[in-house]
Lab assay of single mutants.
Amino acid sequence: NQASVVANQLIPINTALALVMMRSEVVTPVGIPAEDIPRLVSMQVNRAVPLGTTLMPDMVKGYA
Results as ranks from 00 to 15, higher is better:
P29F: 03
Q2W: 15
A3H: 10
V27K: 09
T54F: 03
V49G: 02
N1Y: 13
V20A: 14
S24C: 05
V49C: 05
I11G: 01
L19R: 13
M56V: 07
G52H: 08
P57Q: 08
I37P: 01
T54M: 03
Y63M: 05
Q2S: 11
S42N: 12
T54H: 02
T28M: 13
V5M: 01
P12N: 07
P12V: 05
L40H: 00
L55M: 12
R39V: 09
Q44C: 05
M21H: 14
A18E: 15
N14M: 07
V49I: 15
E25W: 06
R23E: 06
N8R: 12
I11W: 02
N8P: 00
Y63F: 07
A34G: 12
P38E: 09
V6I: 14
L40S: 00
P57V: 06
N8I: 07
R47M: 15
E25T: 08
L55T: 01
M59E: 02
K61M: 11
I11T: 02
N8H: 07
A18L: 15
V45K: 00
M43A: 08
L10P: 14
L19K: 11
S4T: 04
V5C: 05
V41L: 12
L17Q: 01
I32V: 06
A16P: 10
Q44K: 11
E25M: 11
S42H: 14
G52Y: 05
I37G: 04
A48M: 11
P12Y: 05
R39G: 09
R39P: 02
R23A: 07
G52T: 02
S42P: 02
A16E: 12
S4V: 01
D58W: 13
L40E: 01
M43I: 04
V45C: 04
E35P: 08
S42M: 11
P38V: 09
Q44E: 12
G62F: 08
R47D: 06
P50N: 07
M59S: 05
V49Y: 03
A7D: 01
L55S: 01
S4K: 00
E25P: 02
D58E: 13
V45D: 02
G52R: 04
V45R: 00
V49F: 03
L19Q: 09
P50Q: 13
K61P: 10
L10T: 11
E25Y: 06
N1H: 13
M59A: 07
V45Y: 00
L17V: 03
T28R: 09
G31V: 01
N14F: 13
L10E: 14
L40C: 03
V49H: 01
G52S: 06
V5W: 02
I11P: 01
S42I: 03
L10K: 10
V60G: 01
